[in-house]
Design a protein around this nucleic acid. Structure first.
Lengths: 181, 181
DNA sequence: CCTTGTTGTAATTGACTGATAACAAGCTCG
DNA sequence: CGAGCTTGTTATCAGTCAATTACAACAAGG
């Protein structure tokens, strides 16, 4: 059994973090129980807490890794060709990892908490600046790019896009405007 | 004292609903306690539950009224002039009632719950269809309009726009692209 | 081998929270 | 007035959940 294997705190921490991203993407900050994260990671609930201190710090770590991954995808796309059209064509890579956009959305929702809000403003600003600088786009163009991303993010949360989308008329009409998805 | 006044269940229900919209807009579905809603409405917590059955039904009612209000604002704008530019100029009326966009965002986050998800998909589709039909815009144009709205919604949640915005470089750059706000 | 640090769990706790039940206070109409 | 319906509260419960404590298993180095 894998649960019998002893790992270093760093390795186990990474596994717990991955489980946390999955759990938070499904249920949000308040809605996710540390118990559920522990179950997904195959460890006990108190150990999750000891590895990260508090549930809040674990959420912050999840937001950090998710935003870092989003930036990584944009960087790779820009390496292919540094313009917004190319980055846009790579939106399907974000949709292929639905946890990314979902954790992002839940982080917006949790921004009422001052500590989380500070982190989220920082990270989202970092994504905005990265996109603008990678492509040399104007603020207006970057805004339109991110706007489309936010609509896709909300549609992901509504489960009308992504894996196993719930079919509904208006969503299918919208999806078609994005081209083949 | 106002709390001594007896109202009909309908009137008191409306007051509780208004309190619920405020509370849910600040803390989201899971994060808001029925106790807090009761405090805001000036009634006891059990009475809140009895008026709406469950916290979930109260949240659904809040989503319904918020979406109805958003549609009302769009209808009034379209009466002025039925095109997307005019509706866009009325986005500041949405930002003037930050609860609207915030409850909407929290409703996306809570869409993991099947019952809430059904309601949210229905209501958001209704808004999409309304905007498209009021203006005669194409799906592409309507998508771009709603995309901008979703970015504004996320920025509202991050508290970088709306009343008492937290000043931060990237947000101010983005806000300027929207014109005077 | 045994001591020390690290990985991990079981047991528990104390605070919280949505919901229920029982009861009280008004209003209305015959 | 007083019976019955509506409005509203107090008291309380049963369940949940993040966090703490104490302890166990194991590895590494002297």
């Amino acid at each position: 059994m894998a649960s019998k294997v002893r790992l270093t705190a760093k390795e186990r921490g990474d596994e717990v973090l991955r489980a946390a991203v999955r759990a938070f993407s499904a249920s949000g900050y308040e809605g996710t129980k540390t118990d559920e994260i522990a179950r997904l990671a195959g460890v006990s609930q108190p150990y999750v807490i000891r590895l990260f201190g508090t549930k809040q710090q674990l959420f912050l770590a999840a937001v950090e890794t998710v935003c870092a991954r989003i930036e990584q995808i944009f960087r790779e796309a820009a390496a292919e060709r540094p313009d917004l059209a190319t980055l846009g064509r790579n939106y399907d890579r974000l949709l292929a990892e639905p946890e990314l956009l979902l954790v992002l959305l839940h982080s917006f929702s949790a921004s009422g908490d001052p500590v989380i809000g500070d982190c989220v403003r920082q990270r989202f600003g970092s994504i905005y600046t990265l996109v603008r600088d990678l492509t040399g786009a104007t603020p207006e163009q970057t805004r339109d790019f991110l706007s489309a991303g936010m609509l896709l993010t909300c549609m992901s949360a509504m489960q009308v896009i992504g894996p196993n989308p719930i079919p509904i008329q208006w969503a299918q009409e919208l999806i078609q405007t994005f081209g083949i998805d």
